[in-house]
Amino acid sequence: MYLIELQELVKSYGTVKALNGLSLKVPNGCLYGLLGPNGSGKTTTLRILCTLLAPDAGQVKVAGLDVVKDPRSVRRQLGYVAQEVAIDKILTGLELLQLQGDLYHLPSNERDIRIAELIERLDMKAWITRRCGSYSGGMRRRLDLASGLLHQPKLLVLDEPTVGLDIESRSAIWQLLFELKSQGTTILLSSHYLEEVEALADQMAIIDEGRVIAQGAPDDLKKQLGGDRVTLRVREFSDENESEQVRKLLANVDGVRQVVVNRAQGFSLNLVVDDENVLPRLREELDRSKLQVFALSHSRPSLDDVYLQATGRTLMDAELSASGNRDVKLESKQAMR
């Protein structure tokens, strides 16, 4: 049973195509991660899901309800924590939560009990009666989470929930998300942090240029890629010639699938090997040629490797080129009604 079903979503802003036939399904009770660089269409997807934006084409269903045809029923099912926290600086956190409760039509006694629970759970007691204008980023984020959770939604949608937060706030939020999941809440979050998706998500989709280019459980995606990763240096500062020689030497070792000289990292060698049993053979081969091992690290494929395989570039590269193309003014315009 899927709680969210998105089919062939298309959305353009003027000539810019934000979504280009995006489809994905989120099972009930799942913590689902959307991974992609800035500008890949994550926020647009979430905004469509939350009834803030109508798609140009495609189908969106939440809990079997059509988001375009029956937006009000959908709104009751979901809590949305936006990337840009919109709070009223003049109100106190408590007043904001009360307002939120009234907008979801909670009876006032239930509303107040629920608010008290969340103040306790998110550790907001010390500052909740202060005006929101004085809150730090972490406090605002916690307040926003509380207001998204106030009506106990079936589905919690979070857009980059920990971007710009300190480590402590981040781990507090991760902890809360795990708890919510164990209580049966379905969670959809977007992130451009690999480690966040890796640590949190049961299922994930990689989004690039408005389409899903890979989806599944993070471990499965990594396994599908196959092979282990090895990074090797024979000296602290090798030159290109030396690295090239070593590359040729190791390329013939049994179990080595691929060797690349990484120019960006001081001519270190990046290898894809069958498994860790190849490592002793690498050392033997180097010994035979009187070469030392300055550094050697071995790892399973990471999500970054998955991303690299699917798009031909690393997430960081995509992130850098996206940030150059970003038009912040245009984006805030798109978010305005």
Binding site: R75, L103, R337
Partner: peptide, 16 residues
């Protein structure tokens, strides 16, 4: 409210 995105908070809620 439109400019600061507060309106979106209202529009996500199931207002009658």
């Amino acid at each position: 409210d439109r400019e600061f995105g507060f309106l979106n908070r209202l529009l996500v809620a199931p207002l009658s």
